[in-house]
Amino acid sequence: MTYLPYYLTLGLLSGFVAGLLGVGGGLILVPILVWLFTTQGFSPAHNMLLALGTSLAVISFTAISSVRAHHAHGAVNWVMVRRVAPGILGGTFLGAWLASRLPGQFLHYFFVAFLFYAATQMLLNFKPAPHRELPGSIGLSMVGSVIGLISSWVGIGGGTLSVPFMLWCNNKLHQAIATSAAIGFPIAIAGTLGYIVAGWNTASLPAYSAGYVYLPALAAIASSSILTAPLGARLAHRLPVAILKRIFAVLLYALGIKMAMGLM
């Protein structure tokens, strides 16, 4: 109960950022969850896995409202979602299972590198020029497995990867963002199940954990993030989002440096 205000505040922040900037919040959730779990005295060997699993579990709740909103505007390419889903589900579940068997510090280094990549992408407002059309079902499934695998190792809904890919494949920006939100839901579900299964019989996990998902943090963050995500979405049309993205990129750099320093 001592840490409940921290989890509620983290949910308010991640929900607001997700609604305002169109990111799923995992890039903020994971490093702060690692810090909170460490200060609570949880086993250092499991904190990164707990943060990844809990982040994906939160996204599985928050993605629902986002998908409904985009679907109401008719912006989701459901044909692509159906074709990419098998690879997404398989790659994400496999990635979560592999994560628990990788060398201890690998996920920390991988996450820091990805954090710097995402911050740079946001700082430069990177949008690849269209070069081709979407591949067929087999190609999309293969792409989905890669997006799912990487997303499971960084605890995100995949938008940082799937949006640039769809822009490269000649999709309009609003459709790419909407379809990415729909893809994020199976990523979150498969990743959550994968981390639950991977950690089910693991000893020394904190009480009230379902595998590598810490349920008190999930309940608090999901319940508060749902409140602020719509507010962020409304303000996105009134605030200078381009400037806010650069500020957020600086925050990601700071989080990445903080995590990198903890590895030294």
Score class of each variant (00 low, 15 high):
residue 229 A to N: 06
residue 169 C to M: 10
residue 26 G to I: 05
residue 3 Y to F: 15
residue 181 A to E: 08
residue 66 S to D: 09
residue 107 L to N: 03
residue 64 I to C: 08
residue 146 V to C: 01
residue 188 A to M: 10
residue 2 T to F: 13
residue 230 P to W: 11
residue 4 L to Y: 10
residue 27 L to M: 09
residue 108 H to Q: 15
residue 95 G to D: 10
residue 197 V to Q: 11
residue 92 T to C: 09
residue 256 G to A: 06
residue 144 G to V: 00
residue 14 S to I: 12
residue 70 H to S: 11
residue 112 V to I: 14
residue 83 R to S: 10
residue 261 M to E: 12
residue 168 W to L: 15
residue 50 L to W: 08
residue 57 A to H: 13
residue 16 F to E: 07
residue 123 L to P: 00
residue 202 T to P: 04
residue 155 G to Q: 06
residue 24 G to C: 13
residue 6 Y to G: 04
residue 90 G to W: 11
residue 21 L to F: 06
residue 97 W to M: 15
residue 2 T to H: 13
residue 58 V to T: 14
residue 179 T to Q: 10
residue 75 A to C: 11
residue 132 R to M: 02
residue 42 F to Q: 06
residue 167 L to P: 01
residue 80 M to N: 04
residue 15 G to N: 08
residue 136 G to V: 03
residue 241 V to R: 12
residue 97 W to L: 15
residue 216 P to G: 06
residue 103 P to F: 11
residue 102 L to Y: 02
residue 84 V to A: 06
residue 126 F to D: 04
residue 76 V to T: 14
residue 190 A to L: 10
residue 66 S to Q: 14
residue 179 T to I: 11
residue 12 L to Q: 04
residue 38 T to E: 13
residue 24 G to T: 12
residue 164 P to V: 00
residue 96 A to L: 02
residue 199 G to T: 04
residue 77 N to M: 09
residue 9 T to C: 14
residue 105 Q to H: 14
residue 54 T to M: 08
residue 93 F to W: 12
residue 149 L to G: 03
residue 122 M to Q: 10
residue 182 A to D: 10
residue 236 A to S: 15
residue 76 V to H: 03
residue 161 L to Q: 01
residue 240 P to A: 12
residue 221 I to W: 10
residue 53 G to E: 11
residue 28 I to A: 06
residue 113 A to E: 05
residue 263 L to W: 06
residue 219 A to N: 07
residue 248 F to A: 07
residue 229 A to W: 02
residue 235 L to D: 06
residue 246 R to T: 09
residue 124 L to A: 10
residue 4 L to A: 14
residue 188 A to P: 09
residue 247 I to D: 01
residue 259 M to P: 07
residue 76 V to A: 09
residue 57 A to F: 13
residue 232 G to I: 04
residue 40 Q to T: 02
residue 73 H to E: 14
residue 224 S to A: 15
residue 90 G to L: 14
residue 230 P to T: 12
residue 189 I to Q: 05
residue 57 A to S: 15
residue 97 W to E: 12
residue 263 L to F: 07
residue 212 Y to W: 03
residue 85 A to F: 11
residue 37 F to G: 08
residue 157 G to R: 04
residue 181 A to F: 08
residue 216 P to H: 05
residue 172 K to T: 13
residue 86 P to C: 02
residue 187 I to P: 00
residue 66 S to T: 14
residue 98 L to P: 09
residue 189 I to R: 00
residue 233 A to M: 09
residue 116 F to C: 05
residue 220 A to P: 01
residue 56 L to I: 08
residue 19 G to S: 11
residue 192 T to E: 10
residue 107 L to G: 04
residue 51 A to T: 09
residue 229 A to G: 04
residue 160 T to A: 09
residue 240 P to F: 12
residue 195 Y to R: 03
residue 255 L to S: 06
residue 211 G to E: 05
residue 236 A to K: 13
residue 198 A to H: 01
residue 30 V to A: 03
residue 107 L to R: 07
residue 65 S to I: 11
residue 119 A to K: 00
residue 135 P to Y: 00
residue 10 L to D: 01
residue 125 N to E: 14
residue 261 M to Q: 13
residue 99 A to V: 04
residue 257 I to G: 06
residue 54 T to E: 08
residue 226 I to F: 15
residue 219 A to Y: 14
residue 58 V to I: 15
residue 213 V to C: 05
residue 232 G to N: 01
residue 171 N to R: 13
residue 125 N to G: 15
residue 196 I to Y: 03
residue 227 L to G: 08
residue 180 S to V: 07
residue 118 A to E: 01
